[in-house]
Amino acid sequence: MRIAVCVKSVPDAGSARRIDGGTKRLDRSADGVLNPYDANAIEEALRIQEATGEGEVVLVSLGPEKALDGIRKGLAMGADRVVLVSDDAAAGSDLVATSYALAKALERENADLVLFGQQASDSDGAVLWAAVADRLRRPLISQVAELTVSGSSVTGKRQTENGYDTIQAPLPAVVAVSDAINEPRYPSLKGIMGAKKKPQDIVSLADIGAEAGRAGEAGSKTTVLTLSPPPPRGDSKKIEDDGTAAEQIVAFLEEKKLL
């Protein structure tokens, strides 16, 4: 079975996230790391591969070339190869444009199962899979906290506002997993060393048969007009525990008359 996992490189959580006032896009100058939620999707793919003892796990991403630095972590975890769609004309893609280019890349891979993570930690959209599934004309199960693959179908249990649903779909299918589905493995030293030698294809929009005018800013249908700071919060403080945190919490609650 071939499993494609869609992954994104996002700014490191340690860096201050900001939107560039000029381009009105996310400032991506900080080091990129693998979107933490995508590790769950990669882990799930690897477990399916290990359980069946066959198949291939390919990471598919749309982003700048330097995104490879972050995505390589997925190879170190055990994925077999990467396809990164990287093209100046793809910069500034919104959901419609991203899903178009990603679907084109996925069509070439012809995977039995396309997996997504719960959300991109920089945009929190948690929707991309639905647009991609529609373009690929494949059934979709999202928010999956428990996944079983048997023969020619997948079954996912997922939470909604009203409880838990169990949904089944025939393969090929698109599945987005939740961050509770598994505990992602840490890459081993051997995995990290081996990752460098695994195939990492950087392809252009033309390579995947995508029209440049439908990707990037040109293909996007949403725009950001203005940016402004949020209303200020009242006094807030953050302290490192130096052994007196418990005392400081009690003092704070007393001061706020909450005890």
Binding site: R17, I19, L26, D122, D124, T223, L225, T226, S228, P230
Partner: peptide, 10 residues
């Protein structure tokens, strides 16, 4: 961005 910026969109 976790409510750190307010944006007008179209």
């Amino acid at each position: 961005l976790g409510d750190s910026v307010y944006v007008e969109v179209a």
